[in-house]
């Protein structure tokens, strides 16, 4: 074991999979010579050459479509979207094409590809470079969605995503990039399964189900709630949004009787709404009090530091919501 950054974990996953499987190639903007805007793909062009690390023009529809075509004939592209907000520029290719291809061809074609990139607020990038996008993707069967929060899960899930035979959206949060965590030594192979949640903190009073950067915020909130109020929160890291591992959530709520779903994206029509709806449909008897969700208020993300901090549903909002649920 050693400590690495989230960025280093992703870089290692890419390098190890490219060494292992010559079908894997990378395509996107500034990923080769520059090494990626956030340096996630640094040094990969040097090792794998221009055939497998492809710098594109700023043509998201075009290179997303080309990656889909390459995947349809058996390669395994990993496409970088520089900011996840740009998925809207190539939305037809992702949703009408990649997500539906297997179904509408009756299983004759499939699209084994990964779309990865960073998302989220906290760095004052404003409305078009800060969105969290998972709920839109969750509306499209045919595509899987993963959103790890630790370097260990990032590396293990990215390897699983590359080996998956379906399109997988791999969400990185810009606030996670320089966080550090334990990682097995380079070359020690491991994977984290898609669709399996992980309890990151045990507790008995209330379950928080979350993913991506709000996991770290929830863990901090949990520590402070313990120290300040003696409240013992269990934190479930969903890790995947599609498929959603509700079993792990139910196991936790069976112990705590309370559920709060948290994410940075819009509360309205979000994954939190889905989680709350599911527990009422499938296991309402587990709840000792109404389940709730916490997400962003209906506004775009502003640039001003004070306005952005006001809107992001981070630690203080999580603490306040937990306290109100335990009143």
């Amino acid at each position: 074991m050693r400590k690495t950054t989230f960025i280093q974990a992703i870089n290692e996953a890419l390098r190890e999979e490219m060494r292992r499987d010559e079908r894997v190639f990378l395509i996107g903007e500034d990923i080769g010579y520059y090494g990626g805007l956030f340096r996630v793909t640094r040094n990969l062009l040097e090792e794998f050459g221009e055939r497998r690390v492809i710098d594109t023009p700023i043509s998201e529809q075009g290179f997303m479509g080309m990656a889909i075509g390459a995947a349809m004939v058996g390669l395994r592209p990993v496409v970088e979207l520089m900011y996840m907000d740009f998925y809207l520029v190539c939305a037809d290719q992702i949703f009408n094409q990649a997500a539906k291809m297997h179904y509408m061809t009756g299983g004759l074609l499939h699209v084994p590809m990964v779309i990865r990139g960073q998302q989220g607020g906290g760095k004052r990038y404003g409305s078009q470079h800060s969105s969290c996008v998972e709920s839109t993707f969750a509306q499209f069967p045919g595509i899987k969605v993963v959103a790890p929060a630790t370097p260990y899960d990032a590396k293990g899930l990215l390897i699983s995503a590359i080996r998956d035979d379906n399109p997988v959206l791999f969400l990185e949060h810009k606030m996670l990039y320089f966080t550090r965590g334990d990682l097995p030594d380079e070359g020690v192979e491991y994977t984290v399964p898609i669709g399996k949640a992980d309890v990151k903190r045990e507790g008995k009073d209330l379950t928080i189900a979350t993913f991506s950067y709000t996991l770290l915020q929830a863990l901090e909130a949990a520590e402070e709630l313990k120290a300040e109020h003696g409240i013992d929160v269990e934190v479930v890291d969903l890790r995947s949004v599609t498929p959603l591992d509700m079993e792990t959530v139910y196991t936790s709520v069976a112990k705590t009787g309370r559920l709060l779903a948290v994410h940075e994206s819009q509360a309205n029509a979000g994954i939190g709404a889905e989680i709350v709806a599911r527990i009422y449909e499938e296991a309402p008897y587990l709840l000792a009090a109404p389940a709730r969700r916490l997400g962003m208020a209906p506004a775009s993300i502003p640039v001003s530091k004070v306005l952005e901090e006001e809107l992001l549903p981070w630690k203080n909002d999580i603490k306040a919501t937990v306290l109100s649920m335990l009143k």
Partner: peptide
């Protein structure tokens, strides 16, 4: 939409 797919298949042939 099918036009980049064909170019991607051509890219795959070139990579291989």
């Amino acid at each position: 939409a099918q036009v980049p797919h064909a170019a991607g298949m051509a890219l795959a042939a070139k990579i291989r």
